[in-house]
Write a protein that binds this DNA or RNA. Structure first.
Lengths: 155, 155
DNA sequence: ATTGACGTTTACGTAAACGTTAACTATGAC
DNA sequence: GTCATAGTTAACGTTTACGTAAACGTCAAT
């Protein structure tokens, strides 16, 4: 499941070497397609829409998801894996949608970004601590097994 | 998401600190004390006990928490911050409690540890990706403000 | 002897994040 | 036509992680 998600609101900075697959950027996805790709249910995707996290185009009643919608979804799921609530994720997503022309808005965006970065870095400290602990466990147990003449790698 | 208390707080009080922890290891804590320290409610702590995550000593009905209990609690909260459910945290806590004498048990512990490490490392990739994105945002916005002659640091 | 601070159990309430029918609708295949 | 497949809304159910009383016990201080 390659997750080549570019930064959220991809600013058309520089079209390097090749045109980055215009067909891919134009692609539309059905709800079932996205559900399969991300291993969630369609209900979940609709729920995210109810909560204001996604706003797909519509053809009649049927939802049509753009590549941007797909990227957003992937972003939402990553946020969830990191333990953020949907409300928090929505706030962050909305940050990018906000009018970036005003100085006041930009200052607010900067402030919120920094707060969020601080939050993320705390999480990383927590994470590194846990990883360290579990690697210790792994090392000790593996050593103990080895000392007893047992091969730890024969699962 | 309020900023919690210090991870390892110790009152610098008391007599000569010769061995680096005999008194501290002996300390017992009331439920209110732990609640204050970790900025949670007593209800929450009791709930964790109902769920089998803590088993404090009792004096009559009153709960008495050891330093070990306190460490466990801090561990539980860190797990929560990382987005694990109480059920998952309980599993991990129980891993340590398990009889480590048998080879079979040790192999199981090793296996679970490795699975968990893989999980944590995926989380770290997610985390680093988000941190990177938000630092980009920060840099771009700060640069844009600067270019407009606005000082980004005047909150 | 009452107040107040702290502890307890029991139990109903709630918000978040979906799951799960139910009861349609639209579309292409046969 | 009608069957299968995918989509829809609406609404009730479920699990997790606690909040919030209610009703009570214990002890120190007033």
């Amino acid at each position: 499941m390659p997750d080549a998600a570019s930064p959220i609101a991809a600013p058309p900075k520089a079209s390097a070497a090749k045109t980055p697959a215009p067909r891919d950027t134009q692609r539309i996805f059905s709800i079932a397609e996205l559900a399969r790709e991300f291993a969630i249910t369609a209900r979940t995707i609709r729920f995210y829409e109810d909560e204001g996290l996604l706003k797909p185009r519509r053809q009649g009643l049927t939802r049509l998801y753009s590549a941007g919608d797909r990227t957003k979804l992937s972003w939402i799921l990553r946020g969830k894996r990191l333990g953020f609530s949907l409300a928090e994720i929505k706030e962050l997503l909305d940050l990018y949608g906000v009018d970036r022309t005003g100085v006041q808005q930009m200052r607010e965006l900067l402030r919120r970004s920094r707060l969020h970065i601080a939050d993320l870095e705390r999480k990383r400290r927590d994470l590194d601590a846990q990883i360290g602990e579990f690697k210790d466990v792994e090392a000790h147990v593996a050593a103990e097994l080895k000392q007893r003449g047992v091969n730890p790698e024969s699962d």
